[in-house]
Design a protein around this nucleic acid. Structure first.
Length: 278
DNA sequence: CCCCAGGAGAGTC
DNA sequence: GACTCTCATGGG
């Protein structure tokens, strides 16, 4: 077990995990979060001015949490838009880091996320891993890995319905069979963001919003601005938006924020979902 | 009973 | 291109 200690100003454990980009974490009794990704896990917690990362695979989670990226520069670039509302939410949410998640995990989780709520998504994700993932024994208990493509494809439609996916079960089943048949999402990495989006939209169950989440969190393309029901509300209430179609809203926000879109989107989303209600 | 959740697909015009 | 309806499921 290795330990990494970093300044917490631009890496806050709670803000990063609860801002809506990730679903597979548990808040422990001691206040630390246990995070699961693929077949790995880590503990992460913030105490005052420092955030601590504990894992057997520090390298993986250094990449996962994007720790080699300079978020002070990103933060200052966002402030330079000189938009009072955006600056306000950025200041409150600057501890967020955009995760660099495995692309298959990201795609599955965000297909599940459609017309759903975060609690239900988390429940389904956990049951998915418990039902199909490899059980990993280690000191301090055991946990389940994210399932292999083969296991995902071999699971029945009834299994997917049994973990609460509802009508999304058919989307997941179809996507799993597609992957098992040789479709490789990593082949899309050579393409531009808009080209990746176009390819993702060909997959049944993936629309514009889910595709934008996959490009942002799975392909680390920050020139993506996912627009869901919450962002739509913010766009109208706080940004004086006039468009009504979510695709057009996304394009307008992307035009405004460019390569900083992904960061701004998470700052704003987190603000709306939690910070506003304190 | 209603409405809503990190929407998308299919149908109609 | 544009609406509109429907799709499971749990919670408020």
């Amino acid at each position: 077990m290795n330990l990494l200690k970093v300044d917490s100003e631009f890496f806050n454990a709670k803000d990063t995990l609860l801002c809506g980009q990730f679903f597979r974490y548990v808040l422990d009794i001691d206040g630390a979060y246990t995070v699961y990704s693929l077949n790995k896990r880590c503990k992460v917690y913030t105490i005052e001015n420092f955030t601590y990362l504990e894992s057997d695979d520090i390298d993986y989670f250094t990449e996962f949490f994007d720790l080699k990226n300079d978020y002070s520069k990103i933060y200052n670039d966002v402030l330079n838009f000189n938009d009072p509302f955006i600056s306000h939410v950025a200041t409150l949410s600057k501890g967020i880091r955009i995760l660099k998640q495995n692309v298959i995990e990201t795609a599955l989780y965000f297909i599940i996320s459609q017309n759903n709520n975060i609690k239900r998504i988390q429940n389904s994700v956990e049951k998915l891993c418990q039902g199909l993932g490899e059980k990993i024994e280690c000191d301090g208990g055991s946990y389940y890995a994210f399932p292999t493509v083969k296991n995902l494809a071999s699971a029945s439609l009834d299994f997917y319905k049994s973990i609460g996916l509802g009508y999304r079960a058919e989307y997941i089943k179809g996507f799993a069979e597609m992957l098992n048949g040789g479709y490789n999402l990593d082949n899309l990495r050579a393409l531009s963001t808009s080209e990746i989006t176009s390819e993702l939209l060909k997959i049944k169950g993936i629309g514009k919003k889910v595709a934008d989440c996959i490009t942002l969190f799975g392909f680390n393309r920050t020139d993506s601005f996912p627009v869901d029901t919450w962002i739509e509300k913010i766009y109208i209430q706080n940004l004086n938006g006039k468009q009504k179609d979510r695709v057009k809203i996304s394009q307008e926000l992307l035009n405004k924020f460019g390569n900083l879109s992904g960061y701004v989107q998470q700052y704003v989303f987190y603000y709306k979902r939690s910070l506003e209600n304190k």
